[in-house]
Design a binder for these strands. Structure first.
Length: 421
RNA sequence: GCGUCGGUGGCGGAGUGGUCAAUCGCAAUUGGCUGUAAACCAAUCGCCCUUGCGGCUACGUAGGUUCGAAUCCUACCCGGCGCA
């Protein structure tokens, strides 16, 4: 018996399923929203609130915890869960994401999503790839400090791994699949992820193919590094990650490739290409073994989660509830609203009339509006808590609807009143 | 009363003859945020409209000098400070 396992309670319609992921630190009822705890905390939320907010599990970040406080310290603390005082199931993302977000994407103010109408070969996408650089040719192995810092990017990818400079102090670091797994072993989460390359949404087919192939080789190396550590392999599960950017053929190919390896679950990567991924999610998931859990990395708008669940996704993580919350965006059954806006100044109703969270039970929109206007830290805190609950509850209701055969009806009724602006 | 400094858009505060409807900050209005370098970023912010290198009205008030004034001059009004 592996440390991480999955069982399905009910299926349908389509690829939708309700199940349970079992880990050494407890189980996760799916579909589930995995709260993002990048630096070993859900921003603005105390661990003591997890339970009432419906937070079953969190995902922390290898890159960030490696830089600070360092994996050795987290290891000494007893692992990331113990360190943050959370006894439930935990995950760590591999840090591969930083290849993009701190490399090519850095400082470009680039939306991670391409406009819907943008054709793959549109020249406009070159604006996304830095100073007009082309990534068509294989990047040579570079591990030279001067070269790295003068390269204009903070991350350089080669066959073996990625060299990058810390966003905190500019020092040079290097991750390889083996190193990422080693760090994730020290971080000690129940579920760890392979080290992958998350490419720019602007990357063309040629480079995307190259990156996906490399990610597959890295996946095999990550898996080997994990299975090779008997002790850790008995306490942590590992997920492979499907890549392929916005290209359906590469996605399918990637799913097949990753599915052929003996992972405990699967992540669908590249939230940058959201629209394309959601469109072919069922095709991708049909390539993945049905009996293993599937996680959609970085996607978590309510409307996206319905598509995800219908397409066979079991868990989601997304920074939006906390980021939106911190910046005044509130989820309601009628869609997202900006609570600092003038229209809520005298609105004495709860943030969401149907929400069961402690914010909605105790406070009004006018109050939260006031907290934002006066820049009280409680504003972002309450907004984040509510948003987290909104998404965990949405997952709970989706699970319920699958169990009682009413997923379709629930989706229709929810989306009919949920306005997507 | 005399002297002196100063009165600029909701507020603070630049500008001291032309390209100024007027730098900037705050406030205000709105938008964005999708494996978190994000309690952040962006746009708008005199009035009007056919939204344009458009029209109109504006820099205490009223005049004046000048091709041209928020910027110079005169008077007045108001405020700070100093002396009586």
């Amino acid at each position: 018996m592996r440390p991480v396992s999955f069982s399905i309670d009910e299926e349908g319609p389509g690829l939708a399923r309700a199940g349970v992921i079992t880990t050494p630190h407890g189980s996760i009822n799916t579909p589930a929203f995995v709260a993002v705890a990048t630096k070993a905390d859900i921003k603005g939320i105390s661990v003591s609130q997890f339970k009432e907010l419906g937070v079953q599990t969190v995902i922390a970040n290898t890159y960030h915890l490696y830089l600070s406080p360092g994996e050795e310290l987290v290891d000494k603390a007893g692992g990331v869960g113990e360190f943050m005082g959370f006894r439930g199931p935990t995950m760590t993302d591999s840090g591969g994401f930083q290849v993009f977000s701190l490399g090519e994407g850095f400082g470009k103010k680039l939306s991670k999503f391409l406009p819907q109408e943008q054709a793959p070969e549109s020249p406009a996408v070159s604006a996304a790839s830095g100073q007009g650089e082309r990534r068509e040719t294989p990047v040579p192995v570079i591990f030279d400090e001067d070269l790295a810092t003068s390269h204009g990017k903070l991350a350089i990818v080669d066959e073996e791994g990625v060299s990058f400079t810390s966003h905190l102090n500019g020092t040079l670091h290097r991750f390889t699949p083996e190193r990422s797994i080693e760090i994730q072993h020290k971080l000690g989460a129940d579920i760890i992820y392979v080290f992958d390359e998350c490419t720019s949404p602007a990357a063309e087919h040629g480079y995307q193919k190259e990156a996906a192939d490399r990610t597959h080789r890295w996946a095999a190396r990550s898996l080997k590094a994990h299975r090779g550590n008997i002790g850790k392999n008995n306490r942590q599960g590992i997920y492979g990650i499907v890549q392929g950017g916005r290209y359906a053929d590469l996605r399918i190919e990637s799913a097949r490739e990753i599915a052929s390896m003996d992972f405990d679950g699967f992540g669908i990567g590249g939230s940058f290409s959201k629209r394309d991924i959601l469109g072919i999610l069922d095709k991708v998931n049909r390539e993945l073994p049905k009996e293993k859990p599937r996680h959609l990395l970085g996607i978590g708008e309510p409307e996206d989660m319905f598509i995800g669940v219908a397409g066979g996704i079991d868990t989601f993580d997304c920074v939006l509830p906390t980021r939106n919350g911190r910046t005044g965006g509130i989820y309601t059954r009628h869609g997202k609203v900006q609570i600092p806006n003038a229209e809520f100044k005298e609105d004495f109703s709860p943030l969401d009339s149907e929400c069961d969270c402690f914010v909605c039970r105790n406070h009004t929109r006018a109050y939260v509006h006031h907290l934002f206007r006066t820049k009280e830290m409680l504003g972002p805190v309450l907004a984040s808590a509510h948003n987290i609950r909104f998404l965990t509850r949405l997952c709970e209701r989706m699970r319920e609807s699958i169990l009682n055969g009413g997923f379709g009806e629930f989706r229709d009724s929810f989306l009919s009143s949920y306005k997507i602006r």
